[in-house]
Design a protein around this nucleic acid. Structure first.
Lengths: 143, 143
DNA sequence: CTGTGTGCAAAGCTTTTGCACTACT
DNA sequence: AGTAGTGCAAAAGCTTTGCACACAG
């Protein structure tokens, strides 16, 4: 059975409602594009995905919507490189491998890396998120 | 006694030689600007610092040189926000607090946060760096 | 004279802003 | 009609590229 788009659509709308996001046409299209499966996407990948079917969402709206989704907790912003922001559709706490050579981003199970204790926070602040990025590179082929 | 610029200059040149970087006029000016004290600077802060005395280094060269310094291990790239890259003159392993409200970046002692174990790396790769950024925000004032 | 390395103007990105428009009250 | 929220073209800002120049062999 092929991907059921209408149920994905319903899910996307529900998700947004739960987070207090007004589900407009553009936001629904973006949500449908990214929540097909767990993945890491950049803003312009989303733009192409959405406009594959028919030109219907502007660049600015894609950026603004992804930012909104991130603030509301629907996606997770992962910043790995100057001018390379990824949006991760998996929002449960976890960390990342970033392959410097290939640009590939992979999830790391939260419990395969033990963060034993948080340092004392500066006075008058609260922790919002802890981002761990392990930068890896390919082993040079042995000749 | 005021800051001794000529000895800073010599140190900067030595540093670069040790890392195999050709110490050109522009690179020396940039090094002198950033290694005055341990600090976090962005590319355009460096640009202003360098050109405060007299316009002498272009924007492109500042970007390229900071990238070079980072690759060679003279500074550490810390990426905290889309289009906000900091260069940290402290290169020993440590982590960061990033205050979302103020944009301030602070060092966290390496041993105040225990990374118990590294996860298994993907086949054929080596870890290059582990970046931990703890995003914090100011507590709302209680009324 | 040739080849390698460097610096920078300009090009090419990504992201943000400000305003027109919509959709409620 | 007034108000709050939304989408997008254009502006702004950041980073990279490609080429002219310098310098060493």
């Amino acid at each position: 059975m092929p991907e059921n788009f209408s149920s994905l659509r319903v899910e996307a709308v529900d998700m947004m409602r739960q987070k207090g996001i007004n589900p407009t046409r553009q936001r629904i299209e973006i949500a449908q594009a990214i929540f097909v499966k767990p993945q890491h996407v950049s803003a312009d990948q989303v733009l192409s995905l959405v406009n594959k079917r028919h030109h219907s969402v502007s660049k600015a709206t894609v950026y603004n919507t992804l930012g909104l989704f991130a603030r509301k907790g629907l996606v997770r912003e992962v910043i790995v490189d100057p001018s390379k922001v990824f949006y991760d559709t998996t929002t449960s706490p976890h960390h990342h491998f970033y392959n410097i050579d290939t640009g590939e981003l992979m999830d790391v199970e939260i419990d395969s890396l033990l963060l034993a204790e948080l340092p004392v926070l500066p006075e008058g602040t609260v922790a919002e998120a802890v981002d761990v990025v392990i930068k890896i590179r390919n082993l040079p082929a042995v000749n």
